[in-house]
Amino acid sequence: MKNVVLKATGLNIGYAVSKKSISICQQINFELYKGELLCLLGRNGSGKSTLLKTIAKMLTPIEGRIEINEKSIETLAPKELAKFIAVVLTESIPENSLTVYETIALGRQPYTNWLGKLSKSDIDIIENSMLLTDTNNLANKLIHQLSDGQLQRVMIARALTQDTPIILLDEPTSHLDIHHKINIFKILSKICKETEKTVLISTHEINLALKTSDRLLLIDQEKFSVGKSTNGVIQENLMTIFNSDDIRYDSHSNQFIF
C-alpha cells in the first residue's frame, strides 16, 4: 500500500481574465506518493506552471479539489500549508542584500517565533539542507553574487529547509548548462531517497525526466495523464506531445532522439 501525500480530483485549472475564468486543462486526477520523484512534462503554455501554482494555492482551481492528508488545501491556513508544500519558482528574486544563509534560513519561517529566532534544531535542519545541496561553502555570499546554478541550489536548499513532505519545482534547470542540469537532477533524486520527500518537477528536460523520475505527469492539449515511463499509454502520449520531424521518441532506449 503506497502512502498518498497529495490527491487531486476533478481539477480544472486556469486563470481569471476580467471576471471570466479561462480553463487550460480539465479532468486532472492524480495521487502523489511519499518519497517519489515526479516530472511534469508538456509544451510551453500547456499549463505546467499553472498546475504547480494551483497545487501551491497561489492560484485557485476553477473546479475540483486538492487534498493533503485528506484535508482540502482550501481549508488549510497559509501557515499550515507552508508546513506541507515548499516551492522553487522560476521568478527572479527582487534586489536585496540577503546572504545565502539568511535566504536558506527563511525556510524556517513557518516554525519560528515572531522574531524569527532560530533554535538549535532549526540550525541543524539548515545545515543539513546546505550539505545535501552542496551550498555550505556559499553561506556568507550575497545571493545576488551567485551564478544561476548556485542560486538554483540555494533556492532548493531553502525549500528543503522548510521541511515539508512535498517540494514543487517549476523548471529548476532552465538557464543552466547541461552539467548543472544533471547536477540539479542528481541533487533532487538524492533528496528524494534520503529524506523520503515527494518531489514534483516541471521541466523541459525530457530525457533527464525519463531517466530520473519514478512517474511522469503529462499535460497536452487540455488532456492530462500520469504514469510510469514504461507504461504504453504514457509512451504514446509522450510521442504525440513531443514528436515532430526533428525529434523522435525511441521506446527501446526510453529516450528522445534528436
Binding site: K53, A56, K57, M58, A77, P78, K79, E80, L81, A82, K83, I85, A86, V87, L89, E91, S92, I93, P94, L106, G107, Q109, P110, Q162
Partner: peptide, 9 residues
C-alpha cells in the same frame, strides 16, 4: 517576492 512569501505561509 510575493509568491515565495505566500509559500512560506
Amino acid at each position: 517576492g510575493e509568491n515565495y512569501a505566500t509559500s512560506l505561509g
